[in-house]
Write a protein that binds this DNA or RNA. Structure first.
Lengths: 225, 225
DNA sequence: GTATTTTGTTAGATTATTCTAACAAAGGAA
DNA sequence: TTCCTTTGTTAGAATAATCTAACAAAATAC
């Protein structure tokens, strides 16, 4: 069975994979805050276990087996986050650190029970999809708020950044998943955006923020159903 | 911070302590299923951290600091077991293994929240006391069923053995904490006992079993309140 | 198309935890 | 007391994960 360290490498590889599925060693090392030789050495170990493809001086690629293992750890992480928020009353900014530890617990029934108690949720508290028991992931292709045109109405459905800092920023603006936003105007100069939400408060959001907010175009007043 | 391995040694030392607080190295090694040199080496490490007192060729003793650390890990273990049973619907025979992993999580809020959600329970699902936040333990001094005289009525309040095998045995007899038992007779030859409980079923319990069942003398028909 | 920077590799050491083999102290039995 | 068993210790090696220093390949820059 994979050690906690190996599991953390798998997760990192999964998350860092570019569309071609490749990850460079230095990228990996940086993400995990270890030296390149450490990453290099672990990559060789994972290669021997058939979890990734490794050739000298080339970026590495997870195998099917590696991807599945990674996805199942991410499943445990996201189920835990959702459980902490929905069943234990934590805020969405508090759960990552705890889930980072709980995800390494080997106890299928424990996570099964969480899943059941929540009625098989499909996304975590930040809107990221929860892989299924086979490790399959439902990729979502949401637009970011930065791509939306003035006048449109949208619902906040997911985040591209789940750092505590960003989540606390959103908390301070009373922005949460499900919040309906109307895009009032866009400033051509710096691409900042003015939105209204929650009983017509008005708020300016920087482009940096907008890019991290994933939304669904809201079609309440169109022929959508 | 203590590693998971160190935490497991502390817990073992705490549980193996005799009334004088002493534990032999071989006893420790056996309990943790490691060789004596391993135990010896770890004992020296814990000594250097001020968690126990070590002198060559003598049994070791936890310091106050060591006792507190151990008790706080046991607190996390027992809170987890209780949470798994009360809030997640697990059976008392399923929770030990899971708690064995969860107890090593470093996230005070996580356990605080469990504690709150359950209304600050004082015992775990097997009747063992949950140490408080300061690591203080409320020692209970229950009698075992083997010490009770025929004719007496008692309530099952705790167990001396929480192995899966024993718990499954109790399940198969519908014995659980809170069950009221009337002691019908005691066989002098092998000290086995005949009891009735739950709508007057009759059941014979071996001495081996009786010694593991901790009870409170039931005083329903006396001047007790 | 050479020079420089970035990226990746090897060698060798370190720390934590474990082991086996060999030996030493303590304690009970004869 | 002397012997034997149990218990505890030391030495030395193994594995997992990490590091630094030194070097090699690939990519980029001009």
């Amino acid at each position: 069975m994979a050690s906690t360290t190996e599991e953390n490498y798998l997760k990192a590889l999964f998350n860092l994979s570019n569309p071609a599925g490749e990850v460079g060693i230095s990228e990996l090392a940086q993400h995990l805050q270890v030296s390149m030789p450490s990453a290099n050495s672990m990559v060789k170990t994972l290669h021997k276990s058939g979890l990734l493809i490794y050739e000298k001086y080339k970026p590495v690629t997870l195998t099917q087996k590696g991807k599945k293992e990674a996805a199942l750890i991410i499943r445990k992480h996201r189920l835990t986050e959702m459980f902490l928020v929905n069943k234990m009353g934590f805020g969405w900014e508090e759960v990552h650190e705890i889930a980072e530890q709980v995800e390494h617990i080997h106890a299928p029934k424990f996570f099964e029970r969480m899943d059941e108690m929540m009625g098989h949720p499909t996304v975590d508290p930040h809107g990221s999809p929860i892989p299924d028991k086979q490790g399959r992931i439902q990729e979502m292709h949401f637009k970011s708020l930065a791509e939306v045109q003035p006048g449109q109405e949208v619902v906040l459905v997911a985040l591209r950044d789940s750092s505590i800092e960003f989540l606390e920023y959103l908390n301070s603006r009373q922005l949460s998943l499900g919040t309906e936003l109307r895009l009032i105007s866009k400033e051509a100069f710096d691409e900042s955006i003015v939105v209204s939400y929650l009983d017509s408060e008005k708020e300016t959001l920087s482009q940096k923020v907008c890019e991290k907010l994933l939304v669904k175009i809201y079609e309440s007043n169109k022929s959508s159903h």
